[in-house]
Amino acid sequence: MASEGHGHDLPGLAHHFDSYAQQRDSATLGMWTFLVTEILFFGGLFAAYGVYRSLYPEVFRASSHTLSIQLGTFNTVVLIASSLTMALAVRGGQTGKGKLAAALLVLTLILGSVFLVVKGFEYHEKFVEHHVPGASFHFEGPDAPHAQLFFSLYFLMTGLHALHMIIGIVLVGYVAIRAASGAYTPENYNFLEGTGLYWHFVDLIWIFLFPLLYLIGRH
């Protein structure tokens, strides 16, 4: 956000804002508003999930049991850890420690990639077992036709989540480079903070996806 030279020429303050506080408050509010749209975006999928789970509870339970609870739990831990490193990175930006922030961002990026790789293994397993919806779909057990609905939702929800992760990783990489070059000051680390909010949001979605997809009636 380079200054346009109108009015004030404070570094890192856009020409149409009067103060850093106004600029930061605007950025935070804007990011949160965006995240609300994301909540409703995923919300539509959660609604579809709720409807079909209530219509076909048995087959949802049976299908859920084909997912690997170990891998799911592992990924949950990885993602929460990446949220921790992200939060600490933002704190680094906040306190003007650009190098520390950059290092923590790289760690976040690595953890995010680990999550995606594990997810890739899980997808591969589904593919091998013919649990990918489509012509070659095959499911053993009661009410097999409706199992496809579970797996459709599984792939849509985790797929959209993974897409958000990929976008997040690109953002984190960009922010890491900027942070290393000292672009973020305690007055203006808004882009870093915004990226952090986005990353945590992706974590939040997973916090709900994990029990809904992996943990249906394991007893």
């Binding site: 935070t28 508003t33 609300v36 409703l40 949001f201 939040l204």
Partner: peptide, 27 residues
């Protein structure tokens, strides 16, 4: 927990919780 501490809603302006809660309300 994530929202309050990692996402700094605690200690931020009051408007942010309103935004989040209204989003959840419509969901």
């Amino acid at each position: 927990l994530v929202i309050l501490y990692f996402m700094h809603v605690k200690g931020n302006t009051k408007l942010v919780p309103v935004v989040i809660l209204s989003g959840l309300f419509f969901l």
